[in-house]
């Protein structure tokens, strides 16, 4: 399962990097979203993959899931959600004010 999770994170990150390097605001926003998904998953597994274990102390249990990464992920999700909402609005405003959805406000020289 470790291999599967790390592959998922790697693919999400690679797609995120590729998309955020694109020239139009919509792929860039999508790329940032994918990057934040990847980092959320990454943070989540820093507590190691444990299945069926409680995160808080319980009598008679010896295996626990680390609760701290879950709290960190929650914070990171809230922040990245708010940021995504903001950058979407900003991209729309840039489209309205600049008349084009290119991040530089004008078409690139090639293509």
């Amino acid at each position: 399962m470790e291999v599967l999770v790390s592959l998922v994170i790697a693919v999400l990150t690679a797609c995120g990097v590729y998309l955020s390097l694109r020239g139009r605001t919509f792929p860039v926003v999508l790329g940032l979203t994918l990057l934040s998904y990847a980092v959320n998953l990454f943070l989540f597994v820093t507590g190691r993959l444990v299945i069926g274990a409680p995160p808080i102390i319980e009598a008679g249990r010896s295996v626990y899931a680390d609760p701290l990464p879950q709290a960190l992920v929650l914070t990171a999700i809230v922040i990245s959600f708010g940021m995504t909402a903001f950058v979407v609005i900003l991209a729309l405003r840039a489209r309205a004010e600049l008349g084009i959805d290119h991040v530089d406000g004008k078409e690139g020289t090639q293509r």
Binding site: S20, T25, V28, L32, M83, F86, V87, L90, A91, R93, A94, E97, L98, V103, D104, G105
Partner: peptide, 10 residues
């Protein structure tokens, strides 16, 4: 300013 802001935010 909007264009500069977009770059800065991204």
């Amino acid at each position: 300013r909007t264009r500069a802001g977009l770059h800065f935010v991204v």
